[in-house]
Amino acid sequence: MFRIKEKNLLITPFLFFFFRDVNRFYKVKIQTILSPLVTQFLYLVIFGVGLGRVVKISDQFSYLQFVIPGLVALSLLNQSFQNGSSSIFSMKITGEIIDVKTTPLGPNQIILAVACSGLLRGFIVSFLTLIIGEIFHFIFEGSFLPIHHFFWLIAFLFLGGLVFSIVGFSVGVWSKSFDHIGAISAFIILPLIYLGGVWFDLDTLSSFWQSVSVFNPILYFINGIRYSFLSSSDIPVLKSFVMVSFSLVISYCIAYFMTFKGSFQRSF
């Protein structure tokens, strides 16, 4: 009576894990989409507009113009990371992880599904951030902020969202408590994002922090995205692109390794 019509062990499990994860963040959209937007809005009001009256970074563009791409990057990276880490971790809390472990879902499908849903959430929030930014720009500068290199923008958003979802995934797999996730997020990810040049130019840092920042992968994302808007950045765009692609490979390898080594067991 009931026969398996089409069975596919590669695509179908991936797709449904992706659907599930998108559904999950969509069901708590106030927390996952609305509240980060409010934060971005406040950043724009306080830093972009308020601070923008006093701070001058370049002759070519205003501080508001400098900050908007930074905030687009910030919202993308942060939301992708949050999504990746909570996705697996919440399953460990509820016990749903057993559904993952007892079905044909393999590491690649899980990582890709989490990466794609984090990317989607990052995209949504950063796109809405961009719209809010454009409205601010229109109000205070009299025109919309143009995007000079649309394809670079897409490429950097795409890679950034993937990398940070995957990093978040590894953290979620590794974590044994909410404290672990909170600690990684507060002591590593957020400092890296904030020191990555959302608010300031690399030149404004002391030479010590400048040389440290070279190792901060987030710097390259933010600069790449900023280049896409302003056609100018501290770091050559190709270099940023190479670094970002490289971090995608590294983060994927780590995530793959984590699915075997992390606390991913029946009881954890």
Binding site: T12, P13, F16, F17, R20, N23, R24, T94, E96
Partner: peptide, 20 residues
């Protein structure tokens, strides 16, 4: 298993998908 976010039917559908 507790399943925080989903309804009974959603869970069964997702699970079927997980199984390919």
């Amino acid at each position: 298993i507790v399943h925080g976010y989903f309804t009974v039917k959603e869970i069964v559908k997702f699970y079927s998908g997980f199984c390919g």
